[in-house]
Amino acid sequence: MRKRPRIRTRCTLLSLAAPLLLAPAACASDAGSSDDGGDDYPSESIRVIITFDPGGGSDTDFRRLQPHLEESLGVSLEPEYVTGAGGAIGWAELANAEPDGYTIGTVVLPHILLQPELIEDTGYETSDFDIIGMNAYAPQILFVDAEDPAFESFDEFEAHVQENPGNVDIGGAAEYNLSHAVQVMLDDAGLDTNYVATGEGATAVVSGVRGGHYPVGITSIQQYFGAEDEIQPLAVSSEETYELASDIPTLSELGYDVSGSTNWGLAAPEGTDPEKIEIISDAVADALDEEDVLQNMEDEGQGMIGTGPEESEEYVQDYLDDIRSVTPLFEQ
């Protein structure tokens, strides 16, 4: 069997390692804040560009950190919602902002990797950002309506698709996003379905499946949290069993070597002083230790990544390599 392309995410590994990574960071920031004479950054409020509407994944990820970051940085963080084009407008804004440390923004993988590759005139390149840290991740689920499930299990779904190749609709939020990537990888691995992009976000996918407009949907596992009675997952796209929902089988357990997850983080425009990035990233690392932050992540169905600037560069690079192996599949 030939090796199948996949989006490899190191989340599970990294989230285990997170406490180790955080420990020295936390010490550093303690030392820094006590006798830091020369550098008075930050001295005024920091603008935070959020590229999706209030209430979305990026907003949630930032909002739970906000009070802790404000406390440790000693200045206010002012979110600004620059939305549109699946986040691209806001990222172009961030990429073109003054790299003085007073403008940062939320970033999402794989969006900031896929958009510059697949869309003309996005207005930014992935390399336009210096990552402050990747904070949270969430895998995708394949799901059916819980009340009137089109398929009782993944096996049943698989059998049905094999009988009717290319003739089963599977709803996702948009084209060229992670859901679509997972679908094309499954397609390539022999599960030939018809991807229906709703163009209206994850909640529309859930409504579409629940209303019976397409039998199966694919979206972030976050949609499942808080809707356990309404939708029934068939499979999850995490590399290993997803701790927050350990009863859902992973795609690899089901015989498909496919995985991938959405990742949320913070970034500054390229060229921002590494010391300033360090200061923010230390504050983020501290915040990721707070009880209420962890609780909120769990409630939202997100897992923790917790990588600092350097690890994040590497992390993003690895993600990019995986993405590059998937993009040719979109063309087919």
């Binding site: 691209a88 407008i89 697949l118 003309e120 207005g123 948009a174 084209e175 060229y176 992009a197």
Partner: peptide
């Protein structure tokens, strides 16, 4: 809405949305 094609943006990234 559901694809990656830009339409009538005249080269302005701000019009992508």
């Amino acid at each position: 809405p559901a694809g990656g094609t830009s339409r009538f943006t005249f080269g302005f990234y701000q019009l992508q949305g």
